[in-house]
Design a protein around this nucleic acid. Sequence first.
RNA 1: GCGGGAGUAGCUCAGUCGGUAGAGCGACAGUCUUCCAAACUGUAGGUCGCGGGUUCGAAUCUCGUCUCCCGCUCCA
Length: 479
Amino acid sequence: MANDNKLQSIIAHCKEYGFIFQSSEIYDGLGAVYDYGQYGAELKKNIRDYWWNSMTRMHDNIVGIDAAIFMHPTVWKASGHVDNFSDPMIDNKDSKKRYRVDHLIEAHAETLNENESASLLQKMEQLLASDDFAGLKTLIEENNIKCSVSDTANWTDVRQFNLMFATEMGAVASDNPEDNKVYLRPETAQGIFVNFLNVQKTGRMKIPFGIAQTGKAFRNEIVARGFIFRMREFEQMEMQFFVRPGTQKEWYEYWKETRMQWHRSLGIPDTRYRFHDHVKLAHYADAACDIEYDFPMGFKEVEGIHSRTDFDLKNHQQFSGKKLTYFDTEINQHYIPYVVETSIGLDRTVMMILSEAYQEEDLSTAEKQDSRVVLKFPAMLSPIKLAILPLLKRDGLPEIARELMDSCRPHFKCFYEEKDTIGKRYRRQDAIGTPFCVTIDHQTKEDQTVTIRYRDAMTQERVPLAAVKDIVMKAIQTF
RNA sequence: GCGGGAGUAGCUCAGUCGGUAGAGCGACAGUCUUCCAAACUGUAGGUCGCGGGUUCGAAUCUCGUCUCCCGCUCCA
């Protein structure tokens, strides 16, 4: 199957079987926002739990928190988000090149004589200060400023590209709206940094240690596309690992390898992944790489591992005026810890798991055309673990099935169905990725055995009714 | 953001010259069946993405708009 069709098929399948719907669909949808349906929500939760447990339960020195989406506005000044991402921009329609308005005008000013230049820059400053975008465009047009690529002055309107969503906090309007302005966090990491000392002290944590968190983040992407790959509201799973300065390189390597093992544990072969080391580093990092997965639209980042140095804590210390140092009793020194971050997109992981699991199989024989769509999820991630199917809806078979259901449902998600032929019921479970189906038939009444049918191989075998729960439990065991 | 393509039932799609909307699959209720969908009967589902215009009449022509997909661009 061609890859361009595969994404379409997955989107259609996700909708048809209740995994993912477009947000507000009856109102024509809201761009790049999606809702998880009944099975999608289970799948997403299972992935989140698996990540959470692998971080917090399987490491002595990593604890989890849940910070608020709203944070003090100064947080985003300290993190660099306010300054770096709120400049007015303008596009040249011919070259399609986008410029920061101030850069464009400043570059032009350099070609002018001293008086003209100063006058131009002064006008620009006034317009920038008053957010007069129309005035800025007029200024560009009056000065006949051209694009260096296309050499034309065919410009779009000036627009503000602030990638952070803002809202107002507090019911009382202020004279200056900026006073009440709060942002929806564009990343979850800052909630960890500002709680670094709280957790360290109350948890009596000793470096090296980590703080993990999952939660929603919001980015007002200009171009958001690719199904749930790039959404305006999305969920991150992040862990910030605090280390002694100078040891960050080895921890960076450690987490690179540890995170890759986690990916392997999802049953996805190495060939579907690749590392992408950042050459051009962000302002906060001294080393960074992406784990990329081969999505239907090509290799794309699913997780980032960044050595963030002491950039964040140092800035928060400076902006807040609160000391954010740690006293290391081993070397009797105070220092601001360095941070190695692992940051994985939960929605991207859902999409990765779906892409990997989705299979259209041709089951045709000489006599009969046949095919199925199956989601080959790792059993621990499947929305439904076990489907319990009485072969007939009479002769006491449903009663036995219900008993099995009652004994299993406290332990894992089960599904009961007695409608339609058994083959049809199997295929329906294939379509939502249920790894096990158990069928109760007349023989069950005689010898207390059932047929268990495996999703991937479509084979089945006879097992004791009493063993079913343990078979499934064992298969979904994660650690 | 620019360019291209597309929106008709839950899904995949048909719908001629402008004349009051159809199929297959799926779903639901039964029948049959006794371990791998597509056997039989019946039922429900659509302001043809949304809004304006042309017309006696618009799924169809036209303008606008929203959404999705592809390419380029961007991505702390």
